[in-house]
Amino acid sequence: MSYNLSHLDQLESEAIYIFREVAAQFEKPVILFSGGKDSITMVHLAKKAFWPAKVPFPLLHIDTGHNFPEALAFRDNLAKKYNVTLDVGLVQDSIDKGTAKEEKGLNPSRNSLQSITLLEKLEEGGYDAAFGGGRRDEEKARAKERFFSHRDDFGQWDPKNQRPELWNLYNGKKAIGESFRIFPISNWTEMDVWQYIKKEKIELPSIYFSHKRSVVNRNGVWIADSPYNTLLDNEKYEERIIRYRTLGCMTITGAIESTASTLDDIIEEVAAARQTERGNRADDKRSEAAMEDRKKQGYF
C-alpha cells in the first residue's frame, strides 16, 4: 500500500476538517448560500462532515431579487433534499427599510447592496460564523484570505492585520459582536471544483450547461434577457448557445458562448480557458481593488 491521497481527497479532507472545527468552536454558524456551484459543493462537503447526522447549520441566501429563476428553484429543492433550514435575506427589504439605496442610472447592480442585507441578517440571526464558498484562486484580494477570517463588530475585514494561520490550528476566538467568515474551499481551484462535482456526482442548476438563451452583447459580455435589464437605444437581444461559468445577478453575470453540455465537456473547456472565471463579472471590473473594497465592507 502506498497510502497516497489524490489532490481531490486531500482538499475534501481539509474542507471537512474546517466544517467540524467550526461546529466545535462557534455557537451559531450559518452557510452563505449563493446558489452557485461553489456553495452547492460546500453544502455537499458539510453533509459529508457530519454524516449520518444532518448538517448542523442553516443556509442563508442573500437574494438581490435579480436572480436566475432556475437558480432559485434549484435552491429550494436542495434545501429540501438535504433537510436543511433555508433563511432568505431580501435586498428589497433593506431598500424598503431605507438601510440600502438602489444605484442610480440604467441597469443598476444590487451587488454592493448585498453586504448591507447580509450584515443585517447575520445580526438578526445572531450568527457568529458564516461559511462562504470563496476560493483564493478567484481574485487577487482573496489570495490573502484566511480559512478563519476575523471580522470586527461592523463586519469589516482588515487585510493588513490578519491572524497568522499555522498547521491546522485555527483560532476562532473573538470578542462579543465580532464574527468570522469561514472559507472551507480556500485551496480549491475552479478545476478542482469541477472535477469534484464530477467525482461526487453533485447536481447543478441547468444554466451551467450549454443552452439557448436570448442575450445582448454589452462591452463584450453576454447579458441575459430579463425584466431587470433595460436595453440601450442601439442594443438588441439575440439568440445564442451559451452557458454560465459563475452565477450572480442576472444584470451583471455574463454568459460565455459554449456548447459544453456535460461535465466532461466543461472540464475540457475549463482546462483550455484563457480567461479567468470572474472575467465576465462586471462587479469585479469596477476598479483594481473592487473586491478588496467590498470585502472590507463586509462582503463575503
Binding site: 483564493r136 487577487k140 489570495a143 490573502k144 487585510p159 493588513k160 485551496n187 481551484t189 481593488a289 478588496e292
Partner: peptide, 21 residues
C-alpha cells in the same frame, strides 16, 4: 500578479502570505 491588496500596490511591497495555484 501576487500583490493584490491596495496598500501593497501603492507601496510596492508584499504584506502577507499569498497563496497561488
Amino acid at each position: 500578479l501576487t500583490d493584490g491588496l491596495r496598500a501593497e500596490r501603492e507601496q510596492g511591497i508584499t504584506i502577507d502570505v499569498a497563496y497561488r495555484y
